[in-house]
Design a binder for these strands. Structure first.
Lengths: 116, 116
DNA sequence: CCTCTTCCCATAGTCATTCGAGCGGTGTAT
DNA sequence: ATACACCGCTCGAATGACTATGGGAAGAGG
């Protein structure tokens, strides 16, 4: 055995996808397909959002009351589920962002200056 | 069931512990207990390294050839296993640090300026 | 019409990693 | 002797991302 997938470029850091989705929806409601594209584009294609990660994420965010959804029709005239941020979702985004900044600062303290 | 633990302060971001351990050992060999303390101190106690995370991490790093270990005696006169970075470990640290920087930059692109 | 592609949603199964809880042992100091 | 810090380790549960796979519907091209 002992086959392990080395971390690939594009892989999402575990625990950060939810925050990215919430952040994306600050600009207004969107459906899954668009959310993924926005994240990929805004990250200059450094991140890839796989469907197998995205849809479970959307569902758990909705389960937790951070998103609400509504069926509609996409720009391409297809059936699409639009998600929007709830007030709780906004609070969670702020909290998650705070956690993220504290965490990365802490890690960068250990890694040391950029120049290393 | 359905017990979910909200992310607590001190929790390690999944996937970063190995990099932190490798980075700690750049200063020279150390044993597990010390490694944990160094990470906690250097992060200004923003991070907590649990034993249940640390020892499995040390073992897998050694399995991958990134660390080598040797039994010795600690500063407190106790039996302790000293880990040191191998050349492969050094390379991996550089690679992991690069991945980390690219990833955080990408995420920060999406989160936007600090001031939000 | 039929097929192919793109768009859009969804789930099952696998895997790696972290955590909490717990075990055992040994110096040192009270 | 007993309490405590130090030091190593392991197991089960939980989490979340990935691959793989499915389906359905719109639009384009033959």
């Amino acid at each position: 055995m002992v086959l392990k997938r080395p971390p690939e470029a594009g892989d999402i850091l575990q625990g950060t996808l939810d925050m990215l989705v919430l952040r994306t929806l600050i600009m207004g409601p969107a459906h899954g397909h668009t959310i993924a594209q926005v994240i990929e584009n805004m990250s200059e294609n450094a991140l890839e959002v796989e469907q197998g990660s995205l849809y479970p994420a959307l569902h758990r965010l909705e389960d937790r009351g951070w998103l609400a959804s509504e069926w509609g029709v996409s720009e391409n005239n297809r059936k699409a589920k639009y998600y929007r941020l709830t007030p709780k979702g906004r609070k969670e985004l702020a909290a998650a962002t705070g956690r993220w900044r504290r965490m990365t600062r802490a890690i960068d303290l250990i890694l040391g200056p950029e120049t290393e």
